[in-house]
Design a protein around this nucleic acid. Structure first.
Length: 395
DNA sequence: AAATGAGCCAACCGCCGTGCT
DNA sequence: TAGCACGGCGGTTGGCTCATT
């Protein structure tokens, strides 16, 4: 049980992938797309099961993967997201463009957990160890895998009656296949969840060691995370500004340096002011300590998400000059989507939603951008990217 | 230089949900 | 409706690398 039929059919290779296998798989997918994964190994001439091919592609060969170590901002974001989503690595990964769930999971288990414990935080509950008794195996309160109920808890706003402990039904969740939510949709959600001071009762982090401001955001975060959609994919904007600032210069990101893909308007910009509102309304101390207070699209400086949190690992704070030196470009933008016109400065949420609800699989984009990026040494991306991408666009 | 342990990471395993027949 | 195939996810494992003894 659990084993796919393809695994029984023949003696299949297991273990590490050889460069030859990688090449075969890559060539096949860049040329034909993956289609049905179970048929990929056969068509590509590989002695692997389709599942293995899929995994290899997703975790390693995919051209939009960001290589290199995680930036401090990325780590912070992972911690924050984990506090909200628990061990839903794929959903966390969806908010970190270029990172895979496996990568994040590994980072969490090998690194972040340790750091949190060193800081006296229980990585499971995100509460101080003193509160949780420091039990390593304490039952998870957040990553309850019966996600239905836990989600309800996260999502449920409380009634206007601040004494009530019974959550009232939440406004409707973002429907998977309906038109994308409007700004008002989120405003309504925000109002519903933010109105009641007691709403924290249903949020596991209400007493966490994080800054109180976070609770407001956390309450709303789940509303924005749809299991089947990337977070509007707007995190392209949300994340890119955070992450790009700290990506080491040695990072061989596939995003070209020479391109300015930053959209003039994004959903993130639409909603980030709300974070500012949260700050103003709920926090008496929203002064940025990150030294990264600049644009209105910078999540970090706008909502002090990390500013007053305990996750200020002091070893990596970049000033503006550093950012410029390191590139500072919005490298996490899905440039392939830009190429395909999926995200343009005028692209609205609905269009993006349609993009991801559409029949075309997201990965199919690699047919185009994968080919160009893979075959280019990283240092050539910037120089040749536009030319190459233009060429592929014309195909 | 060899042995050992720790940490990291790629890949596997088992389960679940979904869509198709 | 049941059964099957498949994709996807999260947990776990095994092997490699590096540091320490």
């Amino acid at each position: 049980m659990g084993k796919h039929s393809c695994c029984y059919k023949q003696k299949l290779r297991k273990g590490l992938w050889s460069p030859e296998e990688d090449e075969k798989l890559l060539k096949h997918i860049t040329k034909y797309g993956h289609g049905c994964w179970s048929s990929v190994p056969k068509l590509a001439g590989l002695q692997r099961c389709g599942k293995s091919c899929r995994l290899r592609w997703i975790n390693y060969l995919r051209p939009d993967l960001k290589r290199g170590s995680f930036s401090q901002q990325e780590e912070n974001l992972i911690v924050e997201l984990h506090a909200v989503l628990g061990n839903r690595w794929s959903q966390i990964a969806a908010q970190l463009p270029g990172r895979t769930d496996n990568e994040i999971k590994n980072l969490w288990n090998s690194c972040i957990k340790k750091k949190l414990r060193q800081r006296g935080i229980d990585p499971n509950t995100h509460k101080p160890l003193s509160e949780t008794g420091g039990g390593e195996d304490e039952a998870l309160t957040i990553s309850d895998k019966t996600s239905g109920s836990s989600k309800l808890k996260l999502l449920a706003p409380t009634s206007g009656n601040s004494n009530s402990t019974v959550p009232e039904p939440a406004p409707p969740l973002m429907p998977k296949n309906l038109a994308a939510p409007t700004k008002d949709f989120f405003l309504d959600r925000f109002a519903a969840t933010h109105e009641s001071s007691n709403s924290m009762d249903y949020f596991p982090l209400r007493n966490s060691a994080y800054s109180p401001n976070l609770s407001s955001m956390h309450q709303n975060l789940p509303l924005w995370f749809n299991q089947n959609l990337r977070l509007f994919n707007t995190n392209t904007e949300l994340n890119c500004n955070m992450i790009s600032s700290a990506v080491p210069s040695g990072s061989n990101s596939v995003v070209p340096n020479s391109m300015d893909l930053k959209p003039t308007v994004s959903i993130a910009e639409e909603y980030l002011p709300r974070f500012q509102y949260l700050e103003a309304g709920n926090s008496s101390n929203n002064s940025a300590s990150s030294g990264n207070a600049s644009s209105g699209t910078d999540l970090q400086s706008n909502n002090s998400l990390f500013d007053s949190s305990i996750f200020q690992w002091p070893d990596l704070v970049l000033n503006k000059e550093d950012q410029i030196q390191l590139g500072g470009e919005p490298e996490d933008l899905k440039w392939s989507e830009y190429l395909n016109g999926a995200i343009s400065p005028s692209t609205d949420l609905q269009n993006q939603s349609q993009l991801f609800n559409g029949a075309v699989k997201e990965e199919n984009q690699f047919l185009v951008d994968g080919f160009s990026s893979w075959l280019q040494p990283p240092e050539l991306f910037g120089k040749d990217f536009q030319k190459i991408s233009t060429a592929f666009k014309q195909i």
